[in-house]
Amino acid sequence: MSYASFESLLAAAAEHGSLADAAVALECEETGTTPEQVLTRLSETLAVMEAAVERGLSEDLRSRSGLVGGDGRRLAGAAPRLAGEAFVAALARGLAGAEVNACMGRVVAAPTGGASGVLPAVLLTAAERLGASRDAVVRALAAAGAVGGVIAARATLSGAAGGCQAETGAAAAMAAAAVVELAGGTPAQAGHAAAFALQGLLGLVCDPVGGLVEVPCVARNATAVAVALAAVEMALAGLEFPIPLDEVVSAMGQVGRSLPPSLRETALGGLAATPTARALASKLDNGYRRARDEGE
């Protein structure tokens, strides 16, 4: 089970020392495991994230539909024109992780497969920039999980239920909070970071072209990384978002319920309903039919 609110997570963090410690403590209590077991499993999970990003940056990937693949690698190889190197490296990692997911690679759904590029990209880039120890990064993953748990408890993490704000928005909020704690910020600052990230993606619809987790999902992983990094900078500079995180999360759930079904993963609205998307989708259908008739 998760903390039912960020307020209760903050109280537990005050008792245990940090968001990460509060998350590990609850996991031990609920599942009867030891902190060492939880941290070992988190470390294994982090290794899967690292491998996925690495694969996306080094291999020449293409999804079965042919719609996505190779953009993370391309961006990583381009010299930044305007933004800093860390920022662009994080965007490239976000694309790479999401591309590995789209290409049927092994990923960590954190919180979902479709948004699986965001957290590794932000976390690994921050760890590199901050020179954080592996142990600290593993603990940051626990903090991210605690914030994701609050979002699951108060709203939803499903694109079908709440749109993309519930997937990449939640991932950005989780990543922002975790990185603020990793950088030495307080639990309260981590909460502001999550609120800054989630408000920035509030209302984002889920409109996958052809119903596939490819367009715009891969690109949205990168833009969610950018939002998360903006949220981290603002929170670490001491900026505070005036609406408490719990209320921002509830608003996200409310907005998700208000979205028409056409904008919740059904591929009937938004970008999925554009002329170009419809043409792509019908080309895919024909391709699959041909492949089936040929016995593949």
Partner: peptide, 19 residues
């Protein structure tokens, strides 16, 4: 919404993509 059993339902599962 699936039941959230543990931290590893949020940071996980480890799976083959995409969905």
């Amino acid at each position: 919404m699936p039941r959230q059993r543990s931290l590893f339902d949020i940071i996980g599962p480890v799976m083959i993509g995409p969905s």
